[in-house]
Every structure is written in structure tokens, then in C-alpha cells.
Amino acid sequence: MLSWLARMASACWKPVRRYVRMNKDDSNDGDSSLGDSLLWSRDLEKHSLGEFSFAVVQANEVIEDQSQVETGQSATFVGVYDGHGGPEASRYICDNLFLHLVRIARENGTISEDVLRRAFSATEDGFLTLVRRTCGIKPLIAAIGSCCLVGAIWKGTLYVANLGDSRAVIGSLGRFNKIIAEQLTRDHNASMEEVRQELRSRHPDDSHIVVMKHGVWRIKGIIQVSRSIGDAYLKRPEFSLDPSFPRFHLPEPIRRPVLTSEPSVCTRVLQPNDKFIIFASDGLWEHMTNQEAAEIVYKYPRTGIAKRLLKAALNVAARKREMRYDDLKKVEKGVRRFFHDDITVVVIFIDQELLGKKISVPEMSVRGFSDTVGQSNFNVLQGLM
């Protein structure tokens, strides 16, 4: 449905101009100085092993991407939460997952893969409890979910956990000073053959576990991602939606969960040639490869690099619709979704000379797009060895 709408929007770009913000400079087609009011960024901030850059652009009527960076004297946390069906799940994750991580890390005296998994599980349980309490007055909350990408740097080790198709890519310096992009996460998306095979092996008695619909592989003909927080109607029979919601209607009740909230987790001891990590929602990777993104980060100055990556993706999105970015950035939210998704980009730079050193780092909590900044709870981990 969305691809058909996108084609319609592309074919009707001139009529769509009546939806855009017009100003006195709008007639100047060459004016690239006009800002993009749907784009937010923090150009460069400090974290425990270097600096980070952060940018978000909105496409949906209500932004469904939520994100955060938490900095402390000995740790850094990044969260990118790409919601679908609405913003409730991604907002809930942004409010709760990091707090669960800090609590469980404090109880265990460390950060580990198991701590990350338990933080994801606690977040899933909490959101499903919220669904149970509110589905009587808002049944569609059972169809709201979110991808979830998390990274934590702790004592020189990077921990990454992922549900869905957001992606973490590390840039490392190879031979002849060439940057090498390595994807740290798996894409849990039915467009990938290995994901379809995984689903079929889990559901051997269900011939419709993955279905090609409008040229796109979808799980039960509905959703592309195979792992998420939320999407309760695809996990527990008690949350199944009645036929009055045809988009989410299943021909028969599920006998076991169709989706899972079990993250893929990886650990990497940071090496001297590891230079940066890009965390981004799938809206970025739809328009550029891992290597293209890594080369942009390596080639250009650090300040504003997340915004530069984001704008590079938006330029590609505009060209696909035979537009320029100067035209695209005038399009209102909602209509903008015909051209690109909400996109979140966080670039974490790794300065190895800071490893093991005590430096002054603001203990800061930054929420993407909402531009809220406060004190991070990472300070409670100060005493952990």
C-alpha cells in the first residue's frame, strides 16, 4: 500500500506543492540556505571514549523514531527505537529500557550480554502489561511495536543488542588507511532469505508464515520485521484483534508467538583500528550502503557528521522522486512519508588514547528530536569494577 502511495505522490509532485510550507524565498529554486524544520541535530558532544554526533529527521505525522544517548564517566549508551503502527512502543522503550539496564547492571555488578537480554525482556514485559491495561479502551495498541537497537560501551568493550532492522556499523582502519565498514547487527526482516527460513523452521505447520504481498515479503502477510518490542497481537492469543481491524486481522488465532523479542547480541573488545560506530534506523540504510556511510564519516569533519549522513540519505531519497533536497525539505510531515521514513543517526567516535583515563565527561542524557537534555543515571555505575 505504501509503495503505491509513494508512486502516486511522485507522479503528482506538482499538486503536492500545495501542501508544502511556502515562504517569500520559495521561488528561488537554487536557494539551499532554507532550513529543514523537520530535522534536528546535536553536532558534537563528549562521551567517555571520545565524541558523538546525533541527528533525526521526521517524516510521519507523529514521529515514530525515538532515541537517546546516555553518557557517564565510565560508560556510554545509545538507543535507537524505530516504532511502527504508532509512537507508543518506541516512547515506552525510550523511557524504560535504559533504566532497566542500569538497575540490572547494578544488581550484577557489570554490563554483559545477559544484562542486555534481561533489560530487553523487562521492557517487553512492561509494555505488554501496558497493552493489557489499555487495550479495552484502545484495542489498536496491540498492533503497535518497535524495533530496538542498543549499544553500550563499558570498560573498553562494546555490547550491541538488536531487534528488527535498525543497524549498527563499525568503521575500522584497514590497509593503506582505507576505512572498512563491518555490520555488527543482523537485520531481522522477512526480505532476507535467512529470516524467512528461520520463520519457516519455527512454524513448519504454517504455510502462510511468510507471504509475498505487493512485491514485499511479509510475516503473515502483515509485517516485515520478525523481532520487536510490542506487536502483542502477533505474540499472544489474548491480544488478537477482531475483523473490524482488517489490516491486522489474522485468519485464525495464533497458536504460538509469530514474532519474538529475543535480541541478537554481540560483544566486541574495541581495537586500536576501530574508529567509530554508526547506529541508525533503517531509514538511513534504505538509501545508502554500510560502506558509503562509513566513508562519509571517515572523510568529513566530526562536527555535524550525523546530520551530514542524514542529508546524504535525503538527497538520495529526493533524487529517487526526481526532486532536489531543497524541494523535499519544504514538504510537510505526513506527506513527507511518501518520500522517506523517520530517520535517526548516532555516530560514536572512539578515541583509543582515552581508554583507561579519567577525563571530565558530562553525565548527560540526550533525547533525539525532542531535544531534551538532563542528568544521566549512568552515574550509579561509577563504583562498579
Rank of each mutant, 00 (worst) to 15 (best):
residue 87 P to G: 02
residue 39 L to N: 04
residue 249 H to L: 09
residue 176 F to I: 00
residue 122 A to P: 01
residue 97 L to V: 10
residue 147 C to A: 15
residue 45 E to I: 00
residue 271 Q to G: 00
residue 230 G to K: 07
residue 357 K to R: 15
residue 245 F to Y: 15
residue 125 D to C: 09
residue 375 Q to Y: 06
residue 119 A to P: 06
residue 105 A to Y: 06
residue 225 V to E: 02
residue 103 R to Q: 14
residue 155 K to Q: 14
residue 329 K to Y: 03
residue 101 L to A: 03
residue 122 A to R: 15
residue 315 N to A: 08
residue 308 R to H: 10
residue 359 I to L: 13
residue 223 I to A: 00
residue 310 L to S: 07
residue 324 R to N: 12
residue 229 I to L: 15
residue 91 R to S: 14
residue 124 E to G: 02
residue 265 V to T: 13
residue 274 D to W: 02
residue 371 D to E: 15
residue 204 P to C: 08
residue 80 V to L: 10
residue 279 F to G: 10
residue 84 H to A: 14
residue 150 V to D: 04
residue 65 D to K: 02
residue 58 Q to L: 00
residue 139 P to E: 12
residue 292 E to A: 15
residue 357 K to N: 11
residue 57 V to L: 02
residue 269 V to I: 10
residue 240 S to K: 12
residue 11 A to F: 11
residue 248 F to A: 01
residue 89 A to N: 02
residue 73 Q to I: 00
residue 150 V to P: 04
residue 196 R to H: 07
residue 134 T to C: 08
residue 205 D to C: 03
residue 296 I to V: 15
residue 241 L to R: 03
residue 142 A to N: 05
residue 141 I to A: 03
residue 338 F to T: 03
residue 18 R to C: 10
residue 337 R to Y: 05
residue 78 V to A: 07
residue 315 N to T: 09
residue 240 S to A: 15
residue 30 G to Y: 08
residue 131 V to I: 14
residue 366 V to P: 00
residue 21 R to N: 10
residue 327 D to R: 12
residue 122 A to F: 08
residue 46 K to Q: 11
residue 305 I to Y: 01
residue 103 R to V: 00
residue 338 F to M: 14
residue 320 K to I: 01
residue 381 L to S: 04
residue 19 Y to P: 00
residue 56 V to Q: 09
residue 208 H to K: 13
residue 246 P to H: 10
residue 44 L to D: 06
residue 175 R to Y: 02
residue 289 T to V: 10
residue 119 A to E: 06
residue 373 V to C: 11
residue 17 R to Q: 15
residue 282 D to E: 11
residue 129 T to E: 15
residue 309 L to C: 09
residue 141 I to G: 02
residue 68 Q to I: 07
residue 156 G to P: 04
residue 183 Q to P: 06
residue 318 A to C: 08
residue 9 A to V: 05
residue 180 I to F: 01
residue 51 E to Y: 11
residue 321 R to P: 00
residue 373 V to D: 01
residue 250 L to Q: 07
residue 66 Q to W: 03
residue 156 G to K: 02
residue 193 E to G: 05
residue 318 A to E: 03
residue 315 N to E: 15
residue 315 N to D: 12
residue 17 R to Y: 04
residue 356 G to K: 04
residue 302 R to V: 08
residue 275 K to P: 01
residue 88 E to P: 00
residue 90 S to P: 05
residue 120 F to E: 05
residue 97 L to Y: 05
residue 139 P to C: 12
residue 35 G to C: 11
residue 251 P to N: 15
residue 64 E to F: 03
residue 366 V to C: 14
residue 365 S to V: 02
residue 96 N to D: 03
residue 181 A to Y: 04
residue 275 K to C: 13
residue 252 E to F: 14
residue 287 H to N: 14
residue 330 K to G: 10
residue 170 I to G: 03
residue 56 V to S: 13
residue 71 T to F: 04
residue 299 K to D: 14
